[in-house]
């Protein structure tokens, strides 16, 4: 049976994953389109910055975010002046950290999807007078639907399983920043292996279900050949 702590952490984790995924899609779609189609010399730098969270230890990212969001930096001070409380150790702070930490998981599949679209189709869209928004909505996104799904599932699951960044910038506050992965850490620290097992199994089931959903959308080569 799931305890109160488990349910609270599960609800918080799902809320964090949903908010992060929605924000990431909003950011990553135009960013990925820019990376694929720009001729700017800044492209390699921007692409490297978006990929960096993939390579950095979460503690490095968490540390810098903690400093940035804290009262010593202008951004942190401005946030406190605006809301009355610091961004660090709050749900909003977790969202900021999660968005940055999972950015590559949204951008990379979308870049691959957009780059794989036949340029002849993009030429036709331009010849037929499509605006950038129409090109995105009518051509790029529909033709990259599987990449969009991959980005959504990866972002969601990456956020659900996030540990280092959450611990660094969120701390361990029940109901506010204690996610499932932090809860497992707590339970193990308390030698409550039975509870830790239940919480861990919950994460395994959620992750497996998400991956089955993702892979069920991919047709096997053999299946495609039979359909052809």
């Amino acid at each position: 049976m799931m305890g109160h702590m488990d349910l609270e952490a599960l609800a918080l984790t799902l809320r964090l994953a949903l908010v992060t995924t929605a924000l990431l899609l909003f950011l990553a779609v135009p960013l990925a389109a820019w990376i694929v189609f720009t001729r700017s010399r800044l492209r390699p730098l921007i692409e490297a910055l978006t990929t960096l969270p993939l390579l950095l230890p979460p503690t490095v990212l968490g540390f810098y975010l903690l400093v940035l969001l804290g009262p010593r930096m202008a951004f942190g001070r401005a946030w406190i002046a605006l809301t009355g409380h610091p961004l660090a150790f709050s749900f909003a702070g977790l969202v900021v950290g999660s968005v940055i930490y999972s950015l590559p998981f949204a951008v990379q599949p979308l870049v691959a999807g957009f780059a794989g679209i036949d340029t002849a189709l993009l030429d036709q869209a331009r010849l037929l007078g499509a605006s950038r928004l129409r090109l995105l909505g009518r051509v790029l996104l529909p033709l990259s639907a599987r990449s969009v799904l991959t980005a959504v599932v990866l972002c969601f699951m990456h956020t659900v399983g996030e540990f280092g960044v959450v611990l660094m910038i969120g701390g361990n506050i029940p109901g506010a920043t204690r996610t499932l992965s932090i809860l497992i850490y707590d339970q193990v620290q308390d030698f409550a292996y039975g509870q830790a097992n239940r919480t861990a199994l919950l994460l395994v089931v959620i992750s497996l279900a998400a991956l089955v959903l993702l892979y069920s959308q991919r047709r096997s080569k053999l299946g495609e050949a039979r359909r052809a």
């Binding site: 036949d118 002849a120 189709l121 030429d123 036709q124 869209a125 331009r126 010849l127 037929l128 007078g129 499509a130 009518r138 051509v139 529909p142 033709l143």
Partner: peptide, 20 residues
């Protein structure tokens, strides 16, 4: 003038129809 405002149609050997 951008391609979409030139009032020029362009068809190649590859029909390039939007597959979806």
């Amino acid at each position: 003038v951008p391609p979409g405002q030139r009032r020029i149609g362009f068809v190649t050997q590859q029909p390039a129809l939007f597959p979806h």
